[in-house]
Design a protein around this nucleic acid. Sequence first.
DNA 1: CGTACCGTTGAGCAGGCTCAACCGCTGTGG
DNA 2: CCACAGCGGTTGAGCCTGCTCAACGGTACG
Lengths: 237, 237
Amino acid sequence: MTESFGTIPSLRAVPYGPGGSNAVGLLSTYQRSQIAGIATFLELPAGKLVYREGANAQSVFMIASGIVKAFHDLPSGKRRVLAFLGADDVFGLAESGHYVNSVQTITSVTLYRMRVATLADVLRKDASLAFQFLCKVTHELRGSLRHAVIVTRPDAMGRVTMLLRMLEQTSQLSEGATIDFPMSRLDAASYLGLSLEAVSRALSRLERSGIIAFEGRQRRTLRVLDRTRFEKIAAAL
Amino acid sequence: MTESFGTIPSLRAVPYGPGGSNAVGLLSTYQRSQIAGIATFLELPAGKLVYREGANAQSVFMIASGIVKAFHDLPSGKRRVLAFLGADDVFGLAESGHYVNSVQTITSVTLYRMRVATLADVLRKDASLAFQFLCKVTHELRGSLRHAVIVTRPDAMGRVTMLLRMLEQTSQLSEGATIDFPMSRLDAASYLGLSLEAVSRALSRLERSGIIAFEGRQRRTLRVLDRTRFEKIAAAL
DNA sequence: CGTACCGTTGAGCAGGCTCAACCGCTGTGG
DNA sequence: CCACAGCGGTTGAGCCTGCTCAACGGTACG
């Protein structure tokens, strides 16, 4: 009953309290320092496997910067991406002492690593910190539910559009509506439950329709041109 | 920052600790009594709406018996079922003081209701109880991730089979492999991201193939005849 | 300069959705 | 008592769209 952490993919900040407008992270500076006291800092290049599903779960991670993907490999060799995680997200919560999915960096990443037993001890003693973690996991759960809603849409364009809106909201550095698309088409497809061709085609159609425009030839950054039609597609169904 | 609870659909028992074999609920009898002290007990008939999405979130619920569905209505009028919840599951965790999805009973249901503020107070004071809730939400999160994996399968038969296996595992009262199918075809379809015809056809095909057999004319209870082929379909892809 | 990888585009096919009819059970009212 | 409507479930016909297989272009790297 010691290690209850496991599969938490995304623990983004939870803005709460009715009408609370502070979208900042939940943790107070005191709590941050408390976590920093038991964490080690590390830096990983892009494409690095953080841990593999089924491995012994010794650590819980919190992202300082960069983006990772949590995924699950199926017997057939197909890969399902369960979540994209960014700054302030927590992952590595294991089940029965083993990780329940694999995690790999997409961009270069900096993160905090905490030994699971140590963290569990701290949480058991500090109710308010445990409460904050509870809020984070709850928020993460919401993200997963949103994911389920996305992938049950029948149309590829709608799914891709919702992913774009997701990327826009999370990386909302108010960069003037330019959206960063950091993952490969294959990763996006695995997340959306589509073939990578379908993702590519959907993006092309959005572009040809004048709803979005790519910047640069790598087609990894884009801009929304027609906001109303964009939201219409994302909201529909 | 007081009400952080919101959308938790399923908070089933979390058997943990590496190799822990006690699949019973996480809460100790002491903790149960603690919760019972702040909860009121209530009983609802089948088909009753517990609360609607967007309503003021005043209570958190824990299921004693019966099954409910958590769902989300889309602008188009379509309904997506996000989770089926059963005994020991918790729901009603709100965001910004409002419920983020609707909940309706499927069977007749008995549940505990706790005022959210009261529960939050208790959790903030009792770290180990907060920790247990954290484990529950984490478990719930896993369920949601599993859901995402199910709905990204391209084949209808596979999705339906996985739902059957889910129902079998949760209601595992060791009733000799007879599976209860309590929800309507439409509910199942909304959960699986299929049309209700596709669900019906998949069940029929499973039946004609001799993999399952229905008992009774309502076709709401069934039995697995060919275990190996059943698992093969569920595992594939 | 060749290779590898990522992204795009095309052709053909299969499986799921839509529309629609039908069946059996239930509850209601004449 | 029976006729009817309503609901949940099943089955069929045809269309649509996303998947598969395949080829091609551009960029990065050795």
